[in-house]
Design a binder for these strands. Structure first.
Lengths: 220, 220
DNA sequence: TTCGCCAACATTGTCGCCAATCCTTGCGTC
DNA sequence: GACGCAAGGATTGGCGACAATGTTGGCGAA
């Protein structure tokens, strides 16, 4: 209910507004998104809102049924697991590609992130670790140079940021995932594609195993 | 230039019309898609065409640049390879899942497709083999019960049907891929997830190796 | 009382028009 | 002759209004 009344006329802006609103929980899962309401809410025309909802539907963030309106798509635990399973294999591919194609500068960047992760865990800074986690996966995607895979992953990531976020807050999670992350970086730095893929898959398999613990309880 | 003047007013219909037109080569890659032209072409309103183009952009079939219009997205050979690489790992996941979750009826269906493939190759029926190929991959997706992966694959398939089609026409291609397909079915029927995944990945790796031979020459 | 029908409401889908933006072409100048 | 610039045309983006559709509530009859 917090006032997000930042008025932005263009359609692309409405997309960003609604997307971040969903990610940050301003819009709850299954909440109806009435075009007219969002129109006055954001100070944009209904056509702009309509276009934005169409775009977000394509991104998999909102659901639309013919003549019945749009609502925030709720991703069940089962679907979150499926998403992570696909992420597992695709990010595994990216890790392998990264091990093959990384430049020395790329490797330095990865090592830097790994070092930051160590420090964050030592300092118990969960938020910094979560951010570094995001940066590591993004770096692997970038280094891999696999644009199609990057697009797929970006899409999937947008759909379960909520679950990811709750996972990061799980106590003791960092100490479990840290060695996995370090192994990924090590394998890529060793330019060993198969080991890198295996490490990435093992990491995400661990995420999948942990997901049920975070459950599908609302965060409120 | 063939007359596709089947008039259909609703936006969803325009999506289907344009999609099949692109798939069948009515619209060449990089061809501009002017909203007004398509509007009179299909007998739909410009808003409907606009919505349809938005949808197709999300599907990755058309490209849109701000205030510069839409055009049929051309997938380069490099991108086709990337698509197949992602398909390789995701369909590998599906094959593994299928090996775990298939019912006896599912296995019968797979064996039936495999038998049909053998006959098609013996008879030299390239078209039937191509159709069975499509059905086999679709069956694996379905049996796997992995809806997220299925969605990703459907998306990717739509983007390089052209390349896939040209690949199927390559002489001698069927005799290379037939044993790979049979191995996939065998592995799933043996309920061996790792072998199924390996078989699927080997098959698509073979596809990737063959792709450069088909080149990116226009088919006209 | 309960079931079924009907009407009013709420919401989305569609259309045509106007403004904003980009590309092209022609002209003038160096 | 080539470059820069401005006017014109072409095309997309945005907006309001109207039509179509699904939903909800009320009313009457069995």
């Amino acid at each position: 209910m917090s006032a997000v009344t930042s008025t932005a006329g263009t359609a692309e802006d409405v997309v960003d507004l609604v997307r971040t609103a969903i990610h940050q929980g301003e819009f709850a899962p299954n909440q109806r998104l009435v075009e007219a309401d969002l129109s006055v809410w954001f100070g944009a025309s209904r056509a702009a809102v309509r276009t934005a909802l169409l775009q977000l539907t394509a991104e998999g963030l909102v659901e639309r049924v013919q003549n019945r309106g749009a609502r925030v798509r709720a991703v069940s635990l089962e679907e979150a697991i499926e998403i992570c399973e696909v992420r597992m294999v695709v990010e595994g591919l990216c890790a392998a590609k990264a091990a093959q194609r990384a430049s020395e500068d790329d490797l330095d960047g990865l090592r830097e992130i790994a070092a930051g992760m160590r420090h964050a865990v030592e300092a118990g800074d969960v938020f910094a670790y979560s951010e570094l986690n995001r940066r590591l996966h993004a770096a692997v995607r970038t280094v891999a140079g696999q644009h199609v895979a990057a697009g797929v992953l970006e899409r999937l990531r947008g759909q379960n940021v909520r679950h990811q976020f709750r996972l990061a807050l799980l106590p003791g999670r960092a100490s479990v995932s840290l060695p996995q992350h370090l192994e990924i970086v090590d394998a890529i730095c060793a330019r060993d594609p198969e080991r890198a893929e295996a490490a990435m898959r093992a990491h995400l398999a661990s995420v999948i195993d942990t997901l049920p613990q975070v459950g599908s309880s609302p965060v409120h």
